[in-house]
Design a binder for these strands. Structure first.
Lengths: 207, 207
DNA sequence: TGAACACTCGGACAATGGTCTGAAATAACT
DNA sequence: AGTTATTTCAGACCATTGTCCGAGTGTTCA
């Protein structure tokens, strides 16, 4: 599936021109006259895509839209493309995670290059995100009690201690522990700890 | 200890003026007339400090110096301060990790703010770096054989399998395993796996 | 009122890990 | 040549975990 580029610009003729150029390069294009317009038909993170965003647009500005998208948890990469680029705005946009900051007029080479980098970065991020999501999905199948046991297991506690902490017996913990290993689809404690670490469940305290 | 600001600029009068302003704000200051000058007396990462760097300087440019420092493994944060800020240079500098990109003339407030952020970020990075270093130091005390055993343990292998893979007996692995736990100063497999994960020793493969 | 689920607990047994006593061969370095 | 570190190995013993049977209680929901 070709990459989908979301073009946000208040200049209709510019939108048309960019759309033509991008389509010639093999991309799908969706255009928006304002930031609000894009928020109303929010791009789903599930297909490859990026946002080509003007800075100065009526209503929400480009950077403001960027902030909103970050708040909403969107991972769609953003390439800024604007006629007026002041340094503080550029710095803030890049530090906030924008893939690039281009100025009009832009060469096709520059533009395509930035879009390709944005799509590649999104793809890498998505791989990582998907892995974590599948792990979180497994954790979500644990009952509250199993989750407690899971937590203490990966902190190195032994069944006897866990039973004492949770006010039950070692025997019961064994049963929960078995369920945890089963549900998390691991066959060793090492794998379980590795998962917990990658999900950031162990970062509290630590020397 | 006050922060040490390394000022790199070819304009002597500017260096003097900046030095005075920074010292009035409570910083220690070291000045350099060129990038090479700074490379010759390389700032050690061990004390709080940052680099205030001009872009256009004779010899190595500011961004070129930044690249060199990254290659050298330096973690000293960089604040760019220049009269001429074009967008591509700004973008590249920030993406390469510069803390900020300021333009002359700069208000003291902006300058101090950027320096404080740079110092704070360095301090956070140093904490993290020190933790990893202390772990790496522990790993370094392992003999080659112990390191192999360590590796297989945290991948979830059991002693019998490890013995088979390394062409020795389970009994011997037990001895090595004991040494590993001793040297790594952990009392549970969970802690050992957690360390390995944080050191990135487990990222190979993985579903 | 069943049905499904979560949580609890038990006995017996096998497999594994951890610790205690030891020991010996080899390599490397002073 | 002597010392040290590394790697190897043994028996005995206990602690811990994993697994096989099974079962009772309480809650929720259709």
């Amino acid at each position: 599936m070709p990459g989908l580029v979301h073009v946000v610009d208040d200049d209709a003729s510019f939108r048309t021109a960019i759309e033509r150029r991008l389509k010639l390069s093999g991309y799908d294009v969706a255009t928006y006259a304002s930031a609000q317009d894009l928020l109303d038909r929010l791009p789903d993170d599930s297909r490859p895509g990026c946002i080509l965003l003007d800075v100065r647009i009526p209503g929400l500005s480009g950077p403001e839209l960027q902030s909103r998208l970050i708040e909403l948890g969107s991972t769609v990469p953003i390439v800024f493309l604007t006629g007026y680029a002041d340094t503080p705005t550029t710095v803030r946009a890049i530090k906030a995670g924008a893939e690039d900051f281009l100025t009009k007029p832009v060469s096709s080479e520059q533009l395509i290059d930035a879009i390709e980098r944005a799509l590649a970065r999104q793809e890498a991020g998505r791989h990582h995100h998907r892995k974590l999501e599948s792990l979180r999905a497994l954790v979500a199948t644990l009952t509250p009690r199993e989750h407690q046991v899971f937590d203490l297991i990966v902190r190195g506690k032994i069944n006897k201690q866990i039973g004492h902490e949770l006010g039950t017996t070692e025997r019961t913990i064994k049963a929960h522990r078995h369920q945890v290993m089963e549900k998390m689809q691991v066959r060793s404690l090492a794998e379980l700890v590795s998962i917990a670490e990658r999900l950031g469940l162990l970062d509290a305290d630590k020397a």
